[in-house]
Nucleic acid binder design. Structure first.
Lengths: 218, 218
DNA sequence: TTCATATTTAAACAAATGATTAAATTATTT
DNA sequence: AAATAATTTAATCATTTGTTTAAATATGAA
């Protein structure tokens, strides 16, 4: 007779050996690739190499499992900012460079992350987004303080901080979201695409700086 | 006994009065909002106000109906370029301004279009993308000719045309894709959001021009 | 009108799918 | 080792969902 599964908190092994972790890893892969609705619990079980019933044994339901994956994915999606934006020892310029670089590295590792998060956010209520409390984080960051200083000292144009964030994130993330089209148009294989994205680690900070200045003149 | 439905090509009425059109309109709305997998044929029937069986009567299957919607959506997604990019009487700068303006107008009308197309493209093979032949269209356009001239004459930096297109489209489209997050962070209602997007009709062309120049110096 | 054809409807079907059950196996404790 | 608890398995269930069927209704032609 089964009861509640025991809270599996053994020693952390490098390789996901526990059944629970195998399921989570498989779920992440398939959810990221196909989204919630198109994912079958049987697909997850097969990818994880486990019996279908174990999914419900460990996670109660497809939806509960999804909620966990979704939460962790959103954290990963956001976490790129943490640690960069509150460093009081780096300049604004340096923060932008680091942010762009870290983010592109992350997306080369997890190319399906943005489209997954954004697609699922479309249906779900924005409860999760509120929970993440991104607004407070960004607005209270040291980054934002520096940004405001640059504006008041006239170093950069007067512009809504969210326009600024929108622009940086757009330039970083959108190519990954549109990669099927881009690869087709450029005749690029995965490695070519990644090379182009790596180029953008250098280019995007330059572009951003240029964008922020011109406003002041025009 | 039913046979093949007759090809419904009556006089085009302003209001979608025919059953076929009612189904297509409903299907577009729901597919755009929820994607293929999360859409139930019963949802479409209900939204269209018709009997469920009529969907299969007119379109054979959910998939065939989806293919039609998907094709038309991609055309709409791409069509924004047509007509702008091959106008031989406008400058490069003017083309950019018009393109940005038209595109933002389209996305305010059809805010779900990009995420829908890009999500579905992720799963499907890129057969559709190839069929659209976007590469040939862009590369053979008068726009691209002007772009190359600007590079050779030193007016703008040497840069891969796809980087350039990526940047414009990223700045236009990504805010719509990430609108749930943006609205939350900015505390914006739909109308506020649209106002911000309308601001970008002016801002994006300025930013793009600035980006293209700085490269030359650096 | 009358007849044929097109359209619409309610009901039902079959496959897919998330979830559960009860038994079998493995691991842990006493 | 024996007993208890945890994990795994194969089979099954119940619901959802895309699709079909056969009858009913509406439309148009003769």
């Amino acid at each position: 007779m089964k009861k509640e599964p025991v809270p599996t908190k053994k020693i952390n092994v490098l390789i996901d050996n526990t059944t629970e972790e195998k399921i989570k890893t498989a779920a992440k892969n398939i959810f990221h690739q196909k989204g919630y609705a198109a994912t079958r619990t049987r697909d997850i079980a097969e990818e994880a190499g486990i019996n279908l019933a174990l999914l419900n044994y460990y996670f109660r339901s497809k939806e509960k499992l999804f909620d966990i994956i979704m939460f962790e994915s959103m954290q990963q999606f956001i976490q790129s900012m943490t640690g960069v934006f509150n460093n009081e020892k780096t300049t604004l310029e340096k923060k932008i460079e680091t942010f762009v670089s870290n983010y592109i590295d992350l997306l080369i590792e997890e190319p399906d992350l943005p489209l997954f998060v954004l697609s699922e956010l479309r249906t779900n209520p924005n409860e999760l987004v509120s929970k993440m409390n991104m607004k407070a984080y960004l607005m209270n960051s040291y980054f934002m303080k520096q940004f405001q200083q640059h504006i008041t000292s006239g170093k950069i144009a007067t512009i809504h901080p969210l326009h600024f964030m929108m622009n940086i994130i757009s330039l970083i993330v959108f190519p990954f979201v549109g990669s099927p089209v881009l690869k087709n148009m450029g005749g690029w294989k995965q490695d070519d695409f990644n090379d182009i994205m790596l180029q953008r680690k250098i280019l995007i900070p330059k572009w951003i700086k240029a964008m922020m200045k011109i406003e002041a003149k025009g």
